[in-house]
């Protein structure tokens, strides 16, 4: 018998103005698991994350976290439920330096990492505290964006394409850091197009296509399903 889901997303729909972008996204994640949302560009992966945390204006469906429905929580209170959001564009504040960026989000839950622990996880950030956040390289900004939510005590992290446009060496460092987070029991919802990276860390993969989840593949069966996956991804 499988463990119940920590976060259960059902029938998610979302609109940008008049355009209907999500048409029923269903997936779930168990405590301590890493699941990915994969799919080609424009499939609705980013929108799914934005809908869950309330950045998208018009939406329906549910995202049950225990007995709390995230879609009914006002957007500024989602973080209080331990949700940490690392956006695709990283969202480093240019007017704040690295340390100020790390200290920016309020810590809503206990058990978050200290600044020292974050520096241990991402040594590149150490000694860079006084540098303006957006002066860092793309990879370092990604580390900063991840580190920033770890301080808040978030135990579910929504991570949008952390490897996009980043040098292979740095991708490995980020992968190593995510495995450490997983060992610490943090739950991760990872949007990813880099299958190799996704396979190195995830437990299950949900395939999005045209605003719907069309398939679920356990990581162990990834190789066997490569043909099907490549068809979804249009490779």
């Amino acid at each position: 018998m499988s463990e119940p889901a920590l976060l259960d997303v059902k029938d998610l729909e979302a609109w940008y103005g008049e355009s209907h972008v999500l048409h029923g996204v269903n997936f779930n994640v168990r405590r301590g698991e890493v699941v990915t949302l994969i799919g080609r560009n424009g499939a609705g992966k980013t929108t799914t994350l934005r809908t869950l945390i309330g950045i998208v204006g018009k939406r329906s469906g549910s995202g049950l976290l225990g007995n709390v429905d995230l879609l009914k929580v006002p957007p500024h209170k989602v973080a209080r439920h331990g949700i940490g959001y690392v956006p695709e564009e990283r969202g480093i504040f240019s007017k704040l330096n690295v340390l100020e960026n790390l200290l920016f989000p309020p810590a809503w839950k206990t058990g978050g990492m200290s600044i020292d622990e974050i520096y241990e996880l991402f040594p590149n950030l150490r000694e860079r505290g006084a540098t303006p956040g957006t002066r860092l390289s793309g990879g370092e900004q990604q580390m900063l964006a991840i580190g920033r939510v770890l301080r808040t005590g978030a135990d579910i992290i929504l991570l949008d394409e952390p490897t996009e446009g980043i040098a292979p060496v740095i991708i490995e460092e980020i992968g190593a850091a995510l495995r450490i987070l997983k060992e610490r029991g943090i739950t991760i919802i990872l949007v990813e197009q880099n299958l190799r990276f996704a396979a190195s860390i995830a437990d299950r993969h949900f395939v999005l296509d045209q605003g719907k989840v069309v398939d679920e593949i356990p990581n162990s069966e990834l190789d066997a399903n490569m043909d099907r996956l490549n068809r979804y991804l249009g490779v």
């Binding site: 006002p74 500024h76 989602v78 504040f93 007017k95 704040l96």
Partner: peptide
């Protein structure tokens, strides 16, 4: 003031961090 300055740059992210931007 830091929240205010950051909210001019990226209001929806500041909100996602739990701050009542409106």
């Amino acid at each position: 003031g830091g929240y205010l300055r950051a909210a001019t740059e990226n209001p929806s992210l500041v909100q996602a961090f739990g701050i009542n931007v409106p």
